[in-house]
Design a protein around this nucleic acid. Sequence first.
RNA 1: GGAAGCGUGCCAGAGCGGUUGAAUGGGCCGCACUCGAAAUGCGGUAUGCCGAAAACGGCAUCGGAGGUUCGAAUCCUCCCGCUUCCGCCA
Length: 410
Amino acid sequence: MLDINFIRQNPDVVKKGIASKNVNPDLVDIFLAIDDKWKKLVKNSEELKAEQKKVGKDNIDKAKKIKIEIQELENLLMEAEIERQKILESLPNLPFNDVPVGKNEDDNIVIREVGAKPEFDFTAKDHLELGENLNLIEFEIGAKVSGSGFYYLKNEAVLLEFGLIRYVFDILKEEGFEILITPDLARKKFYTGTGYLPKGPEAQIYEIKDVDLGLIATSEITLAGIHSDEILEKDDLPKKYAGFSHCFRMESGGYGKYSKGLYRVNQFSKVEMYIYCLPEESEKFHKHLLDIEEKIFKSLIIPYQVLEMCAGDLGNQAAKKYDLEAWMPGRGAWGEITSTSNTTDFQARRLNIKYRENNKKSNFVHTLNGTAIALPRVIIAILENYQQKDGSVLMPEVLQKYLGFNKISR
RNA sequence: GGAAGCGUGCCAGAGCGGUUGAAUGGGCCGCACUCGAAAUGCGGUAUGCCGAAAACGGCAUCGGAGGUUCGAAUCCUCCCGCUUCCGCCA
């Protein structure tokens, strides 16, 4: 959510910013018009209430009449308020000035490429074939029991998932994160609060019938919720959390040739990093998150490239965002494996997360998120990059002590 | 899942229909006392919004959302959370 005062004072800056995210800049004028109307209604109704209070002490009949007037005004005020809030919540966060200009993912910038792509003297298989041959992944039973988009991991793939999680948690503890396993379900106010229902209701969240709960799409939701409606002490910042959860996404509709397999699924495991910090430090911590992501993939020896997202591909909440894409030989293309965003005070304002220094005035914190490890996609990358001519798959060296084996073969 | 109780400011804790944004104590911040400190005394100590250049004025907020009333922290309904007892389970 943007700062109302900032919009009032800098309408042109806001227009320019949201236009760069492909959002209609006229929304700003529409917002200001309704905001103006709202202000007038507030003034009128507050004056009447003050009158009512005064009069009620010695003239109850007159106060009763005022009450009726107030009710009429309050109805109008409520309408204006809902409309105003709706527009406000539809405005995306503004991109930083140094974010590349661009319309969509085609305009993202490759900052660097790290690691050498493997060269095979045989025809590389994709993870589907490897998974089947090595008895690691079962899609058909997943579809039978839970529907398409669900799968069972089997045998070494199970151990690989747990080994990766353990490995990553060791790194994150070292980097000063508090490690957590979060709930897989959260109340609606949280999965809307972090903006995961941006366009219309229930876009990609599974909701539980008859209760105010939905399956989270990422533990960003549960991590951001930890300090909602709190005022943190300045000295306690930054707060760095790394949370494991299962993630659930409906992903209804097709995504073409990459729909098959583990790349886009309805349920997966993920460790997410989340930082609450002082506004002046968020750019520093964004770099920190990107560094950790790169450290993980460097150590796993998986070739990747770092992308800086252009304004048009930033999404609703981010002021700046980097993705890591791993090389996936099975498709002969890069595939997204992490994403880290600086959401500045956009989430904090919506979730009401502030900090205060001694008795000074409080202010909104900045929040950042980044993928530490999204399991299925990393499993794809490992299977495909580490495959051998004989059909077996070697394990990254750093994982071996977590796995208890160094190779998967039949 | 059933029953009962509870939810007030940074904390503890009063208030249970009307000058109560909220007694009292603690904490914290000033000031005084002191060579300095402790103790003591005095003063201050919420947030959001609207209006004002400002001083300041107004409105809202006592878990959340509604309702009753001229008026609600106080009465009613629903929801959330906590505690205790019973049931059930890993």
